[in-house]
């Protein structure tokens, strides 16, 4: 419980930071409504998501109603309203990947991570998304983990992908601990 509370507070704080950053960036951008989608893309590109609070700010910037910006942002697949995980996982469900069992792969991630598609794990480590064709159909089924494309994915490879990230994390943690120890002893 306490953990969750702390995490939630952390998220609130982060969202505040993001909103402040957006408020600082907006004035430099053209107010031509043709720029609406590019601006939303830019915010998402920098911060990883569109905090709901930013919708009103963007609306005020362009001098258009919040409902309109909300309508545009919710129309397109690209925009997300919650922060992505540190390791965003995108499972391809394009035609070729579907035929080769992409759905089963998605299901395995869902089960393994305990989240549904479109969600982020509580610890913000992973987020899960479905995408339609990343353009390597010849290597189907395909999963994009972070920037890396994993090809010919099987349920056991799902396990492998997560384990690999966990190991990497643990190594990083140990190094950090070591560093801290060193700096402590200095």
């Amino acid at each position: 419980m306490v953990d969750n509370l702390e995490q939630d507070q952390e998220i609130d704080l982060e969202e505040e930071r993001v909103l402040d950053a957006i408020a600082a960036e907006l004035p430099g951008i053209s107010r031509d409504v043709h720029q609406l989608i590019p601006v939303l893309q830019k915010i998402q590109h920098i911060h990883g998501y569109l905090p709901l609070g930013s919708i009103g700010m963007v609306a005020a910037h362009f001098g258009i109603p919040g409902a309109k910006v909300f309508g545009v942002a919710t129309f397109y697949n690209q925009f997300r309203f919650n922060p992505p995980g540190r390791h965003p996982i995108k499972v391809c469900l394009g035609t070729a990947c579907h035929v080769k069992g992409g759905e089963i792969i998605l299901e395995n991630f869902t089960r393994r991570l305990g989240i549904e598609e479109g969600e982020t794990t509580k610890d913000r480590e992973y987020s899960l998304e479905r995408v339609a064709c990343v353009g390597c159909c010849a290597l189907a089924p395909v999963v994009v983990v972070g920037e890396k494309i994993e090809s010919y994915v099987t349920p056991s490879k799902v396990e492998g992908v997560i384990t690999e990230i966990e190991i990497q994390n643990e190594i990083a943690e140990r190094e950090k601990a070591k560093d801290e120890q060193q700096s402590d002893s200095e």
Binding site: I37, Y76, N77
Partner: peptide, 18 residues
Amino acid sequence: SGAFVCGEETALIQSIQG
């Protein structure tokens, strides 16, 4: 921004117009 329907020409124009 990732909407299949925006390949349709009139929808494409709408999306450029914001």
